[in-house]
């Protein structure tokens, strides 16, 4: 499994050099997240990343715990994205079909097991299909599954970043994984690679 690590900032905390070190360490992951949040549109992702980086630079002095730098940067990126979405009169932080507890339990109850996609797809095919499936997800589902499953943040960290309850993160994760699994299975069947359990 790929590991996510957070190095100590080498330069003095709060200095511009320390900020650039922190940004440099996480720029690839931030770009990847921006790209997913923007549905795969690189120009939009770059614009979002620049905006978030400037906000982070302005607020860097407030970062007291240097080991929290990664989550702090991602929080700024995600909130910048949703602020921009809100400015565009889109209610990005809530989904009309978010499940309440009872509906979540019913959905969990209806789950049916299936063959695992990596049994039938190569790693490269799988990566491409997962990327395409992620981009096709509804916006809020995409953000949750990217932060938790791709970037490895905990459900609690994702809830803080997105400013939504943990239960909502859980139900969105479930729905996103269900869609991902179904899309991967469809792809495999189209490629005549699918074999049922």
């Amino acid at each position: 499994m790929r590991q996510t690590r957070t190095k100590r900032i080498r330069s003095a905390p709060g200095s511009s050099r320390a900020f650039e070190e922190l940004l440099s360490e996480h720029v690839d992951a931030l770009f990847g997240t921006a790209l997913r949040l923007c549905g795969g549109h690189q120009a939009d992702a770059e614009d979002l990343l620049q905006d978030a980086a400037l906000r982070a630079f302005e607020g860097f002095a407030s970062l007291r715990e240097e080991t929290a730098g990664r989550a702090w940067l991602f929080t700024i990126l995600v909130r910048t994205h949703f602020n921009r979405a809100r400015a565009g009169r889109r209610r990005a932080e809530s989904v009309s079909s978010d499940l309440d507890e009872a509906a979540f339990e019913r959905a969990l109850n209806d789950w049916q097991p299936a063959a695992t996609p990596e049994d039938v797809l190569s790693e490269r095919q799988l990566a491409e299909r997962i990327g395409a499936a992620l981009d096709a997800l509804d916006h809020p589902l995409r953000a949750v599954v990217h932060l938790v499953d791709v970037e490895g943040f905990s459900q609690r960290e994702a809830a803080r970043m997105l400013e939504i309850p943990e239960g909502t993160v859980a139900s969105r994760l479930f729905r996103a994984r269900r869609i991902l699994r179904d899309r991967l299975a469809t792809t495999a069947r189209e490629l005549r690679l699918w074999r049922p359990l």
């Binding site: 690839d28 770009f31 997962i130 994984r177 991902l180």
Partner: peptide, 26 residues
């Protein structure tokens, strides 16, 4: 599902031009 998404999920590196423009902005 969480594991395979984490292991092979897309993590494109920031293109050099994007990285350069970002640090120039900073």
């Amino acid at each position: 599902l969480a594991r395979i998404t984490h292991e092979v999920g897309p993590r494109p590196p920031a293109p050099r031009a994007v990285r350069d423009r970002l640090f120039q902005t900073v």
